[in-house]
Each structure stands twice: as structure tokens, then as C-alpha cells.
């Protein structure tokens, strides 16, 4: 009886969480435009999606921004970790605290302040400003995911490499970096997903004509919703889902090998 209750409760919770997305997914395959009647299975909205040049352009922009900003943030964040790790305890705690604040900060505040900052420095809002904004908000996530790995890596491993004749640079790439790789990779993936589904900050920092998928959906929806958007949302959800699974499965595999 108790077990049955537990199961029902769990199913209810999952239902609440995923029902809206399920509805969206189902409707994306609906032949009819209607949001209430089922007109039969169809892939026509997906066809429409992949022939719509505006959507494809936005998709391209989104992917470029996500990839480039995640890559840049990964490099910057990893370098920052190396520096922070060498600091004394008090400054290190302060810097790590400062690193966490932007992640807690409301996105709308980050977005508006970035926009004001660009305008104040006379930088025209464009594709570049979106990219810069995305790099900015991605760096803390990379630091957060690389730092624990760096703390685990023994200083003596680097020293051992140097002791065996390696130059400091060779020792870093050959010995320290491979140890950090799982952290760097999950940092990159996290930054990538963050950038992929960001709307608020992109909305405030984009220039005229620059659209990512999220800003495009927003403007389309205002004009009256088309099931093509359901198809797009479904695809975005699925790709983020796949990425999240990748992030979470990877470290576990690593652990299995050690044990």
C-alpha cells in the first residue's frame, strides 16, 4: 500500500513536470493547425521548419554563438582556474564568491546591464555583442566545473613530470590537462547548453536582424502561433536533453573505470 502510494506520487510529479512538453511534442506532429483536435499524424511542420530560411538562419546563428562562446569561455575559464588555484586562501574565496554572483543574478539584470554597457562604450549592438555577452555569462559555469577537478589534481603530479625532465609547458599539456579534461568537457557542454537556450540576455544585446532560435520564436509567437514553432521547440528540447544526458553520463563512466 505504502509502496503503491509512493509510485503514484512519483508518477504524478513526473506528469506535472513533463506533460506540457509532451503536449507540445504531440501537437508538433498534428496534421491540423488546431490546438484541440487531432488531425492525424504528419511531418509537415517539420518540413516547413527545414524549408523556412529565417528559421534556418536563426538556427545557424544560435549554433555558431553557442559553439564559439562555449569554446572561448572554456579557454578563459580554465586559465582563470589555474590562476585562482595559485592564490592564497582569502583572495581565492573572494574571487570564487564573485564568480558565483553572476550565476545567481537575474538574467534580465545581466541582460540590461550588458546592453547599457555596450551602448555606453559606443559599441553597436550586433552579432558580436551577443557573442561577447554569451562568453561573459558562460565563463563562471566553466570555472565552476573545472575548479573541483583542478583541486583534485595533485601538485605533485605536475612536479613529478618536471622532475622527470619535462619542461613546464610540456608537463602542463601532457599531465595536468588530461587530468582536467573531464571537468573542461563538462564545463564546455554546460556553457554550450546555457548559450543555446538563452533568451533574455540575447534579446537585450542583439542588433537589428540578428536572431537566435529563442528570439525568433518569441517574435513569431507574438504574430500568432504556428505549429512550426512546436516542431522547433521539440527539436530544441530534444537536443538539450541529449546534451544533458551526455554531461551526466560521462563522469559516471569515468568513476566505473577507477573502481
Amino acid at each position: 500500500m505504502k509502496n503503491a502510494m509512493k509510485k503514484i506520487y512519483l508518477i504524478l510529479m513526473l506528469f506535472y513536470l513533463y506533460a506540457p512538453i509532451m503536449v507540445l511534442m504531440v501537437l508538433s506532429f498534428n496534421e491540423s493547425r488546431s490546438r484541440v483536435t487531432w488531425g492525424g499524424f504528419s511531418l509537415k511542420w517539420y518540413e516547413d521548419l527545414f524549408t523556412n530560411s529565417m528559421i534556418l538562419d536563426a538556427l545557424k546563428t544560435t549554433l555558431i554563438i553557442a559553439l564559439v562562446s562555449a569554446a572561448a569561455a572554456t579557454v578563459l575559464g580554465t586559465l582563470a582556474c589555474l590562476g585562482i588555484n595559485r592564490m592564497r586562501k582569502t583572495p581565492r574565496t573572494i574571487v570564487m564568491g564573485m564568480n558565483n554572483i553572476p550565476m545567481m543574478n537575474a538574467e534580465i539584470v545581466t541582460g540590461i546591464s550588458l546592453m547599457l554597457c555596450f551602448v555606453a562604450f559606443g559599441i553597436t549592438l550586433s552579432f558580436k555583442t551577443v557573442l561577447l555577452a554569451h562568453i561573459t555569462f558562460n565563463v563562471p559555469y566553466v570555472i565552476l566545473s573545472v575548479m573541483p577537478k583542478l583541486k583534485q589534481t595533485e601538485v605533485s603530479v605536475y612536479e613529478a613530470a618536471v622532475d622527470l625532465g619535462a619542461s613546464p609547458v610540456y608537463a602542463f599539456f601532457k599531465v595536468v590537462l588530461p587530468d582536467l579534461m573531464p571537468g573542461i568537457l563538462s564545463g564546455f557542454l554546460m556553457a554550450f547548453t546555457m548559450s543555446l537556450d538563452d533568451f533574455v540576455i540575447t534579446h537585450f544585446t542583439r542588433g537589428a536582424g540578428v536572431n537566435t532560435l529563442s528570439t525568433l520564436i518569441y517574435s513569431e509567437v507574438r504574430r500568432g502561433i504556428k505549429p512550426t514553432m512546436y516542431a522547433l521547440s521539440t527539436l530544441m528540447f530534444v537536443s538539450v536533453l541529449v546534451l544533458l544526458i551526455l554531461i551526466n553520463v560521462r563522469p559516471q563512466k569515468k568513476k566505473d573505470v577507477i573502481e
Binding site: E154, S156, L164, P178
Partner: peptide
């Protein structure tokens, strides 16, 4: 002289093996 140029080698307390 930096450590990588010295004719000595060290065995560290925590082994410091390259785990990968």
C-alpha cells in the same frame, strides 16, 4: 637550475603517478 635539468629524480609521498 630548474628541476627538469637536475641529475636527480624524486619519489613522492603520494606516488604522483599519471593516472591517464
Amino acid at each position: 637550475l630548474p628541476p627538469n635539468k637536475r641529475p636527480v629524480n624524486t619519489v613522492f609521498q603520494k606516488y604522483a603517478l599519471f593516472t591517464h
